[in-house]
């Protein structure tokens, strides 16, 4: 299988890995967003807590979670490897470079945008995923259907803090720009372009990169506003 490792170490091979992990993470975002919209319900968190239990106890979800963790790690690590190769390719910089004349700023700063997302992920994981797994969450009972960890309560508590909400909103802006390049870049890397379908892919990509982060950002904002009332 050495031909495979050789292939994956080539420039295009590494790009392929970024594309696959990126696309998987995009799919993850869809699922995660849909699930988290349960936080908008005015039911004291019941729907969300039931969903949280489902997500942490179903084998197939747990398997997919492992793939997600791996994707995050591989996507981040490969981005560092690639950035180092690319920096080496231009050791002396231009004195004057009008880069914005030929490409949008976010396409040239995916690393920084990705880092914003990564930092956010560390905080986000610590706040909720870690507590769900290893923390001492309060327990709640719903009509005798058993005991559920009350993840909702710590989410609501966290989103009472304006600075925490701001962190999420800023991260979602970073994610939006990261996606607006990443979505179509992934398809281009895979060679999946065609006169008939590329405009559609780009349209969907743009829509996706605005709508999904917006919905994500709305969750803490709405919960914060609700907590004021």
């Amino acid at each position: 299988m050495s031909w495979l490792t050789e292939a994956l170490k080539s420039s295009l091979g590494r790009k392929l890995v970024m594309s696959f992990t990126g696309l998987f993470l995009i799919l993850f975002l869809v699922g995660h967003m849909l699930g988290n919209t349960l936080l908008f319900f005015d039911d004291g968190g019941q729907a969300f807590n039931e969903y949280a239990r489902f997500m942490t106890s179903t084998p197939i979800i747990q398997a997919l979670s492992l793939v997600t963790y791996a994707s995050i790690i591989i996507h981040a690590v490969y981005s560092i490897v690639i950035t180092r190769i690319n920096r080496r390719a231009r050791p002396i910089q231009y004195a004057l470079n009008k880069a914005s004349a030929s490409s949008p700023w976010y396409s040239r700063n995916m690393g920084i945008l990705g880092t914003i997302v990564l930092i956010f992920l560390v905080v986000h994981f610590r706040s909720f995923w870690y507590e769900m797994r290893f923390g001492q969450l309060p327990v709640v009972n719903y009509d005798g259907s058993g005991e559920f960890k009350d993840l909702y309560s710590i989410v609501a508590e966290s989103f009472k803090q304006w600075w925490y909400v701001l962190l999420y909103v800023v991260a979602m802006i970073g994610l939006a720009f990261h996606l607006s390049h990443g979505f179509k870049s992934a398809f281009q890397t895979l060679g999946l372009t065609h006169k008939k379908y590329t405009p559609l892919i780009e349209g969907v990509g743009l829509w996706f990169s605005i709508v999904v982060p917006t919905i994500f950002a709305l969750i803490p904002v709405v919960m914060f506003i609700k907590s004021l009332g």
């Binding site: 420039s11 790009k15 190769i85 390719a89 880069a99 004349a101 490409s103 396409s107 390049h181």
Partner: peptide
Amino acid sequence: EGFGLCTNTGACSVE
């Protein structure tokens, strides 16, 4: 040769 990796910014085609 040591060229970098393409990240699909598209600047090449513009210029």
